[in-house]
């Protein structure tokens, strides 16, 4: 399963995902600059990413917890998500996203 990430300098990375992980875990373990301070508990908003429009509808929508946590993120857009709240599945093979400022 491929994950296509654009970092804050505009560099593109192609990562290998798996369906036992969250998106945040793949980004973090690949060494990308994502703090994920709370380790994926939806308690820090430091795993903020922008999902490309066409992939957005394939993932579960934000729940209340995530929506509240996004209040602590900067430059929140319609495409904003906390990557620790996105469980990967084969359906998301090829997903494209961008790291948000932090």
């Amino acid at each position: 399963m491929k994950i296509k990430v654009t970092d804050r300098d505009g560099n593109k990375h192609e990562l290998e995902g798996d369906s036992n992980s969250t998106l945040m875990e793949i980004l973090r373990d690949a060494g990308l600059d994502i703090e994920a301070a709370c380790g994926g508990c939806c308690a820090c908003a430091t795993c903020h990413v922008y999902i490309s429009d066409k992939w957005l509808e394939k993932i579960n929508v934000r729940d209340d917890d995530e929506e509240s946590m996004l209040d602590q993120a900067f430059d929140v857009k319609n495409t904003s998500r906390l990557s620790c709240q996105i469980s990967l599945s084969e359906e998301l093979d090829g997903i494209e996203l961008e790291l948000a400022p932090q």
Partner: peptide, 8 residues
């Protein structure tokens, strides 16, 4: 006065 929570 920006209040965006705390970090460590």
């Amino acid at each position: 006065l920006p209040f965006f929570g705390l970090k460590m």
